[in-house]
C-alpha cells in the first residue's frame, strides 16, 4: 500500500498503478500512476486527445463496452484490482457510478428514472423517499416535485443533467465519475451543477473530467493534468500521459512542469 502523506490523512479509495490503455494497436494513454483520495473532488484536465476521458471510463470499466479497448496495469478499488478476471463489471459499476457528457435520462418518467437503478440494485425501502432525497441531493427537487410522472425529457438540459446525477446518487455509489458533465450546458446550469457537486462532496468521492479550467479551479481539491506527446518513432500519432498531479492550488499557482504552466495559461490546448 502507498503511505498517506502527512498533509492528507484521507485514505486512497482508488489507485491506478502503471495503467496503459489502448484501442486496438493504438495506445491512447500510458504509464499512469494516480491515487484518488476518498471524499475529494479530483479533476482531470488536459488538451483534447490526451486520454483523460479514457482514463475516467477505465475507472468503472465502461471501456469494456468499446470494442478493441484493452488495459494494462492495475486499478485498485477497495483493495481489489477491478480488472481481475474474477471481478464482475456490473458490481464495479454499482459502486462507482457515472454521469455522462450529454444528459441521457431514460425515456421514462422522472420518478422511474430514479427508481430504475435503485430497483435493479435490490432497493427495498421507501421508494418515494429515495426519489425525493436523491433529487434533493442533486438540487433538482424543486423543479421536479410537481411533475414526477412527466417524462425525463420534459426537463431542460441542465435539469436533465441533475436528474442524471440524482439517478446516480440513488444507487448509493462510493465514487461518482463525471465526464465533462457541463459541456452541453449553459453557464447558469453549470453553476448549479457545481453547487450540487459541493454538496455531494460530503458523502461521495467525485472524479470529474473537464475542459473548463475555471471549473476545475472552482470545484476540485486535486487536479491531474494530462498531456499528449508524439510517439518517439515519429509517425505523427500521439499518446497521452499524466504530466502532473497535485492539489488544485499548486497546479494553478505554482505548477512544477513547464507544460502545465503553458496549458493553464492558455498557450495550447
Amino acid at each position: 500500500m502507498i503511505k498517506n502523506t502527512k498533509k492528507s490523512q484521507k485514505k486512497n479509495i482508488l489507485s491506478l498503478e502503471d495503467v496503459s490503455i489502448s484501442y486496438g494497436t493504438f495506445e491512447a494513454v500510458k504509464n499512469v500512476f494516480l491515487n484518488f483520495k476518498a471524499g475529494d473532488i479530483t479533476s482531470l484536465i488536459g488538451p483534447s486527445g490526451c486520454g483523460k476521458s479514457t482514463v475516467l471510463r477505465a475507472l468503472n470499466r465502461m471501456n469494456d463496452l468499446i470494442p478493441n479497448c484493452s488495459l494494462k496495469g492495475t486499478v485498485l478499488f477497495d483493495g481489489t484490482n477491478i480488472y481481475d478476471k474474477r471481478v464482475d463489471p456490473v458490481e464495479v459499476r454499482r459502486r462507482i457510478g457515472m454521469v455522462f457528457q450529454q444528459p441521457n435520462p431514460f425515456p421514462k418518467s422522472i420518478y422511474e428514472n430514479i427508481a430504475f437503478g435503485a430497483r435493479i440494485n435490490g432497493f427495498t425501502g421507501d421508494m418515494d423517499q429515495l426519489v425525493e432525497s436523491s433529487l434533493r441531493k442533486a438540487a433538482v427537487w424543486s423543479e421536479c416535485k410537481d411533475k414526477l410522472n412527466d417524462s425525463g425529457y420534459s426537463l431542460s438540459g441542465g435539469q436533465q443533467q441533475r436528474l442524471c446525477i440524482a439517478r446516480t446518487i440513488a444507487i448509493e455509489p462510493e465514487i461518482i465519475l463525471m465526464d465533462e458533465p457541463c459541456s452541453a450546458l449553459d453557464p447558469i446550469s453549470t453553476l448549479k451543477i457545481e453547487e450540487t457537486m459541493h454538496e455531494l462532496k460530503k458523502n461521495y468521492t467525485i472524479i470529474i473530467v473537464t475542459h473548463n479550467m475555471q471549473q476545475a479551479l472552482r470545484v476540485s481539491d486535486m487536479t491531474a493534468f494530462f498531456n499528449a506527446v508524439e510517439y518517439e518513432d515519429g509517425d505523427g500519432g500521439k499518446v497521452g500521459y499524466l504530466a502532473e498531479f497535485d492539489s488544485t492550488k499548486k497546479i494553478f499557482n505554482s505548477p512544477k512542469e513547464k507544460t502545465t504552466q503553458e496549458y493553464i495559461s492558455g498557450k495550447f490546448g
Binding site: V90, R95, G97, M98, N104, F116, G117, I120, T168, I171
Partner: peptide, 17 residues
C-alpha cells in the same frame, strides 16, 4: 443511442436488464 445503454450500464444494470 448508445448514451442510453451507457446510462443504464453506468448505474450498475446488467446487460440483460
Amino acid at each position: 443511442p448508445n448514451e442510453l445503454r451507457y446510462a443504464s450500464l453506468g448505474i450498475g444494470a446488467s446487460m440483460y436488464t
